[in-house]
Amino acid sequence: MTPPGTGATTLQHEPSGRTDPDAVDATLAASGDAHAFERLYRGHLNRVASLVRRMMGDDDADDVIQDVFVRAWQKLGTFRGEAAFGTWLHRLAVNVILGRRETVGIRRKRHVEGDAVLALVPGRRATPEISMDFETAVERLPDGARQVFVLHDVEGYRHEEIARMLGLATGTSKSQLHRARMALRQHLER
């Protein structure tokens, strides 16, 4: 096993003065400790997996999740502990996802512009299982609208950041978000 980095992480201290366990594990993992990295993997898996699934759909999700963690292992030496490990990993995950975006997007030919976005989301009346329905509706949005919606409304990124990440104009990010929301509204209304 090749140690992934220099292990130069600065340990994070929580407000209580205790050391952040993630930062400790990141330091250990950066020095080649795969068990520490597995703890990080298990601690952050659900969030990364959900991000991947929402951004890309189910089809390639497992492959991309693996890619995210393999990339994280390779890049651990660049984690300086200036932000929480989860924040660092999340940003890295977005980059990996976006790197896969074009390939997957071209293959699926799911980029749809304009009002056609609305027709792609099948409607259903709200049910007690609305949460899963909503999740499904998000996954069925066309790629562009879905990525902006997930990054903005689910993950909390600002339009300026999204535009930079996706290579869009800020106005395009805003209009994609509105389209996505309106599509989801139709879905919930019917």
């Binding site: 997996a49 959900s50 998000v138």
Partner: peptide, 26 residues
């Protein structure tokens, strides 16, 4: 819609991906 988006719950993959990741990182 926004409230629902912010309330989505995270869930992991259906199978354990660690063995494959462990193999890839050696």
């Amino acid at each position: 819609i926004v409230a629902r988006a912010q309330g989505l719950e995270d869930r992991g993959p259906e199978r354990d991906l660690w063995p494959a990741i462990a193999a890839r990182i050696g």
